[in-house]
């Protein structure tokens, strides 16, 4: 109660906060990022719809990089460790993150999983997020880059329907491109046009995990990010 004038009013105090609601997640993400930088480990957050081909593209990546780079992966799913098993079979050092009912990974789930995965000698770490075009876009995990998969079978207007996800993408992999000849109503140009409405400077590659089309370009993109991550590390080390 107000005790200055005896009016009996409740003593309400406004406090200006100006705080980011996800600041705890951002702190943990910064901690993860520090781990990745000090190990010169390129961490990539791989997002996309269920069935867009995230695991298949990572299997193709492992085949292409066999003997050249050591790859690790954290595979997020609501249930089962099927993706982690597939990735392990492809030669990737993989752990699963079973989220239960959570529709996305957050930085603390990734941090916890990093304690299970020996990543000291890894070159690349792929964080395969839960299949979902909404929730994963909101959470920073500490990654160096966001890669979003969009299968040609998903339709040309997916970027317009899920603008936040595609706006956050550093690279879009237009996957299952080998199916395009069987989809007379889908045009690659119109998919790219949709991307231009939600990404100011869209970077995209058309790939097929099945035929290997575009995988070399994807590997080249990874190498470029790797060099950028090393440069970042040196810059931080000398500050």
């Amino acid at each position: 109660m107000c005790d200055s004038c005896g009016c009996g009013d409740t003593n309400l105090v406004p406090v200006e906060v100006q705080q980011r609601i996800l600041s705890d997640n951002e702190r943990t993400a910064a901690h993860n990022r520090h781990h990745f930088l000090e190990r010169s480990l390129l961490a990539v957050n791989v997002m996309g719809s269920p069935g867009a081909g995230k695991t298949a593209v990572l299997e193709a990546t492992a085949r292409a990089l066999h003997g050249r780079r050591l790859i690790g992966a954290l595979a997020g799913d609501l249930a089962t460790d099927h993706d982690a098993q597939r990735l392990s079979a492809a030669g990737i050092r993989a752990e699963s993150i079973t989220t239960g009912s959570a529709c996305h990974l957050d930085a603390s789930m990734v941090h916890h999983a990093l304690h299970q995965l020996n990543c000291a000698d890894l070159d690349y770490l792929f964080i395969e997020n839960v299949g979902n075009l909404v929730c994963p876009a909101v959470y920073d995990l500490g990654q160096a880059a966001n890669v979003v998969l969009l299968a040609v079978t998903e339709g040309e207007d997916k970027p317009l329907k899920y603008p936040v996800m595609f706006h956050k993408a550093d690279l879009v992999l237009i996957s299952k491109i080998d199916l395009l000849p069987h989809l007379p109503d889908i045009s690659l140009d119109r998919i790219v046009d949709s991307l231009r409405h939600v990404m100011p400077n869209p970077k995209y590659l058309a790939v097929s995990a099945r035929t290997g089309q575009g995988i070399d370009d994807w590997i080249m993109w990874l190498h470029q990010q790797e060099h950028a991550a090393v440069a970042d590390h040196h810059r931080h080390a000398h500050v």
């Binding site: 003593n11 105090v13 906060v17 980011r20």
Partner: peptide
Amino acid sequence: ILIDRIVMEVP
């Protein structure tokens, strides 16, 4: 995604 202000009842 920000908290601007909190209005609280204080004793």
